[in-house]
């Protein structure tokens, strides 16, 4: 069996509406990246296919290719519309 780790994914705006969740724990394979997780979540929730999203890991901007660690907090950030 592949080794897994657990992360928490937080959702905002359109993504919160699509998932109907503020956050959830997700079990993922080690060495997974946000790109892998998005693909995995897309299969469950039908998220936008070509998302113009930024990534934050543990409240700092990060890359789609970052390797996720156990207990990480992952956020997919839609284009912002404050002000």
């Amino acid at each position: 069996m592949h080794q897994t780790i657990e992360i928490t994914v937080h959702y905002f705006a359109k993504l919160r509406d699509l998932t109907n969740k503020e956050k959830e724990s997700v079990e993922i394979a080690i060495e997974s990246t946000p790109k892998d997780i998005y693909k995995q979540l897309n299969e469950i929730y039908g998220l936008p296919d070509n998302p113009n999203l930024k990534i934050a890991i543990n409240d700092s901007f990060a890359s789609w290719e970052s390797e996720l660690q156990d207990k990480d907090k992952l956020v997919f950030i839609p284009p912002v519309t404050g002000g």
Binding site: A13, D17, G82
Partner: peptide
């Protein structure tokens, strides 16, 4: 810069009863 960079999102709720998240510049 706040409008471009700070992670805040705006949903408009219309008189018609519909609502929509605004699309950012990306």
């Amino acid at each position: 810069e706040v409008k471009k960079r700070v992670p805040i999102w705006k949903k408009e709720i219309y008189e018609s009863g519909e609502s929509d998240w605004l699309k950012g510049a990306g």
